Amino acid sequence: MNSITVGSPLSYAAIHHFGGVIKPKKAKALAFKAGGDSVFAKQVTIPARPYMGVSTDNAREIESAIGDFMKAVLQ
């Protein structure tokens, strides 16, 4: 194995990560509660809020962990 997959199995992960527009599939409007009030909307735009991936700090930590592992294996 020579690869790593980063992601989420959650059905709503992509819309939160990339953002997008949610529209009703079968109804005339989306219905949900916000602040205790009922809200009806023809569509809702969700802004991108990236959370998946590897930051520069993560990359350093991963490299360090791999280096430590390799040293332990090769001794």
Rank of each mutant, 00 (worst) to 15 (best):
K71V: 00
F18H: 10
A59F: 07
K23C: 08
F18Y: 12
P50N: 12
K23M: 12
N58H: 10
V44W: 00
V54R: 08
I15W: 05
A13S: 14
G36I: 10
P50W: 05
P50H: 12
L30H: 11
Q43S: 14
G67C: 06
F32D: 13
G20P: 02
K26R: 14
G53W: 10
V39A: 08
A31Y: 00
I22K: 09
G35F: 06
P9I: 11
K33N: 03
M52T: 12
S55G: 07
A59P: 01
G67E: 14
K42P: 15
A29S: 01
E61R: 11
E63S: 12
K26P: 05
S55W: 05
A41F: 03
S3E: 13
A48K: 14
G67V: 08
H17G: 00
I22A: 05
A65H: 04
D57L: 07
G36M: 09
K42H: 15
N58D: 15
F18M: 14
K25P: 00
I22C: 04
S55T: 15
G36Y: 05
G7F: 03
E63W: 06
P50I: 08
K33E: 07
P47N: 01
N58S: 07
F69S: 09
V6G: 00
T5G: 13
D68L: 06
V6T: 01
G20V: 03
V21N: 09
G19K: 08
G36K: 06
K71Q: 01
G19Q: 12
T45H: 08
A72T: 02
N2E: 11
I4D: 13
V54S: 08
Q75K: 14
R49I: 03
T45I: 11
G35P: 06
A27H: 11
K25Y: 02
Y12M: 06
G67H: 12
V6K: 00
G53M: 10
V73K: 15
S3V: 04
F32H: 12
A31H: 02
G67A: 14
S3R: 14
A41E: 13
S3P: 01
G19Y: 07
F69G: 11
I66V: 15
A72H: 02
A13N: 07
I46D: 01
T45W: 06
V44L: 09
K25D: 03
G67D: 15
A41R: 06
I22Q: 09
K33D: 02
A59V: 05
A65G: 04
K42M: 12
